[in-house]
């Protein structure tokens, strides 16, 4: 048998592609999964869009700030589903008892993380792009008209979502599926503080300090500045990015520590409760 062992490669885009392909196979094999990716973003956007329409009929302020709620709900979905898309791909490996296979394969943690990031973008694109098109049809609101600002909003929201997703992934490795609920609910903890639908000034003064520690707060403030005041605030985006870099770096460290702890406690093979 004249087969040669493959070479050792420090970072392999092919291994990243293998994980992306594995999850792509799952998504494309099941139309209910594709529908599920679109269902909640669509329901949320329509609900908030009609609320906005109703409020705008009774308020001059909201009439001028058309699209704010619709934009906010789509942005919130980018944040929430950015994290969820990351975490669900990770959970799929636990549900299918495949984590042991991956951990014993040459796949490196960084490659796994990059693959999960790509999967969260793919899942989000499937769920959100049709919703943005529906927003044009129903409410005449074109999210894409935000241009460069939109790209910066999305970048910052993704970074926060991935940072949270990484910590959740580490907790799942360390504690098994007992930590599953965190994957679904952790982002809602940030919801009131990140001021999605209202300005930071609405919060009690002592709480604003915590709100400004969270990068999405800057994004939602920036979004309101753009839609209501017609001003793009690069300062807010830079501050969000700076906090995100720290947050993401810290989450990588936490993930690697939890992975090491899982190795010490022998939980990598189990994956259950």
């Amino acid at each position: 048998m004249s087969v040669q062992s493959p070479e050792y490669i420090a970072f392999s885009p092919r291994r990243v592609a293998a994980i992306v392909l594995r999850h792509w196979y799952v998504i494309r094999s099941s139309w209910p999964r594709i529908l599920d990716l679109m269902y909640w973003p669509m329901v949320q956007m329509l609900t908030w869009g009609f609320i906005q329409l109703y409020v705008a009929q009774h308020s001059n302020f909201f009439a001028q700030a058309a699209g704010t709620f619709v934009a906010a709900v789509i942005m919130w979905d980018i944040l929430f589903r950015g994290q969820l898309g990351f975490s669900i791909s990770f959970l799929e490996e636990l549900y299918s008892r495949n984590m042991g296979n991956l951990m014993m394969s040459p796949l490196r943690p960084l490659e796994f993380v990059v693959a999960l990031m790509i999967m969260s973008m793919i899942r989000l694109a499937i769920g959100t792009i049709p919703v943005t098109l529906l927003a044009i049809v129903f409410f005449g609101f074109n999210l894409w008209a935000m241009g460069l600002a939109l790209a910066l909003f999305i970048l910052n929201l993704f970074l926060t979502g991935w940072a949270v997703g990484l910590v959740v992934a580490g907790l799942l490795l360390r504690n098994g599926l007992g930590a599953e609920n965190l994957a679904w609910g952790i982002m809602f903890l940030l919801m009131p503080l990140t001021c999605i639908y209202y300005p930071v000034e609405v919060l009690p003064e002592w709480l604003r300090l915590f709100a400004w520690m969270l990068p999405p707060t800057y994004v939602f403030e920036g979004m309101r500045a753009l839609l209501i005041d017609k001003v793009f605030r690069p300062d807010l985006m830079l501050q969000a990015f700076a906090i995100n870099v720290v947050l993401f770096g810290a989450s990588v460290v936490v993930f690697l520590q939890l992975l090491r702890s899982a190795r010490r406690h022998g939980t990598l093979l189990q994956g259950g409760d």
Binding site: L21, S96, M99
Partner: peptide
């Protein structure tokens, strides 16, 4: 190992 499975939704080739 019987402690791990390979993804069941994927075909054998996948």
């Amino acid at each position: 190992s019987p402690y791990v499975d390979i993804p069941m939704r994927l075909t054998v080739w996948q």
